[in-house]
């Protein structure tokens, strides 16, 4: 895994490291619980876990300001937790209950929060890319200085609509950060089997969009790159591409037997490059936290996740009448 920008120079406080640790751990424990509830049949359909990629959203959220927007694909649980959405509401949506963010009508792949400026949760690979540029278009039209983070994977990076969008985003100087979460597998197809050139961050060059590769297992490097990208957008210089090299420990979805890669490959990444272990080590080495402090955090996170699972099991199914609501908006 090539990391172009070392994170060593990033000036980071113990407080911020603790925040990163807590946020990444919340995502991981939440996803593990979601996997467990799926196995129990409480979550149905498709369920795409974010385990391994936590540093990407946590690092980028640290570069965002209030009012900035985010939009992503169906692997969306981490993005929602990182932008401050309530774990109870997310988990209850996974179980298809009334207390979920979409009242149980969206599911794992389709959640939204106007309050937290989270615009989904989209199930068609690549479709969120023009949508994200459209959010940025609206912000530019209004002149409000906001930036949109548009997340997509290395698989989506081969969709035609991505390049239609790059062209217009550059043409119209839209304030959008295109975040390519390169977890190296487009579902089960390894990047070298699906992608002609390995450097996806250079794909904006012919449109004049700057891009850089980032070590996605290092939350500090991600934040650092995120700040550069956001500054570029806020100055009115148009879009910016971050190819964040990351790794998904679990299958594409819960029903993925993962025969396309070896167990050893996954194990090696977990042992040598885990993003949470990395921050844990920085906290201990920098004497920002003791083993006991971190144990206390683990316990606290476990309690939050456990409460979200309880909420998601206890929240009632949506009323049958909900079948017919929210199809059309009423004129105000």
């Amino acid at each position: 895994m090539a990391a172009k920008k070392p994170a060593a120079k990033t000036n980071v406080s113990g407080e911020e490291l603790q925040k990163f640790y807590r946020e990444m751990l919340l995502i991981r424990r939440f996803e593990e619980k979601a996997g467990q509830l799926y196995g129990m049949g409480l979550i149905g359909g498709f369920c795409h876990l974010y385990i391994g990629q936590e540093a990407v959203v946590v690092g980028l959220e640290a570069a965002a300001e209030e009012g900035d927007k985010r939009i992503t694909s169906y692997r969306d649980h981490g993005h929602m937790l990182a932008c401050g959405m309530d774990p109870n509401g997310v988990m209850a949506e996974l179980t298809g209950r009334e207390g979920g963010y979409s009242k149980g009508k969206g599911g794992s792949m389709h959640m939204f929060s106007k309050e937290k400026h989270f615009y989904g949760g989209h199930g068609i690979v690549g479709a969120q890319v023009p949508l994200g540029a459209g959010l940025a278009f609206a912000d530019k039209y209004k002149g409000n200085g906001r930036v949109t983070f548009t997340y997509f994977g290395d698989g989506a990076a081969n969709q035609g609509q991505v390049y239609e969008t790059f062209n217009m985003a550059a043409l119209w100087d839209l304030p959008v950060v295109f975040v390519i979460e390169n977890n190296q597998y487009a579902m089960g197809t390894a990047q070298q089997r699906s992608t002609s050139s390995p450097d996806i961050h250079t794909r904006g060059e012919s449109f004049g969009i700057p891009g850089e590769a980032v070590d996605g297992m290092d939350v500090l490097a991600v934040k650092d790159a995120g700040e550069r990208a956001v500054a570029h957008c806020r100055k009115g210089k148009g879009p910016y591409i971050l190819e964040v090299k990351t790794y998904r420990y679990r299958g594409h979805s819960m029903s993925d037997p993962a025969k396309y890669r070896t167990r050893e490959e996954v194990q090696k990444m977990r042992e040598e490059r885990d993003a949470i272990d990395h921050v844990r080590q920085l906290l201990i080495d920098g004497k920002h936290a003791s083993e006991e402090d971190l144990k206390a955090v683990d316990k606290e996170i476990k309690a939050i996740v456990s409460a979200s699972a309880d909420f998601a099991k206890e929240s009632p199914l949506p009323a049958a009448e909900e079948l017919w609501t929210d199809i059309y908006a009423e004129a105000t």
Binding site: I71, Y119, L135, A138, M168
Partner: peptide
């Protein structure tokens, strides 16, 4: 030209951008 906008010949892309703009309040 802020409100009457010529697009490139890329229907999929500009339709998606317009839907995103509608999500964003336009």
């Amino acid at each position: 030209s802020k409100r009457v906008i010529d697009t490139p010949i890329t229907e999929h892309g500009f339709a998606g951008i317009a839907v995103g703009a509608a999500f964003g309040g336009l």
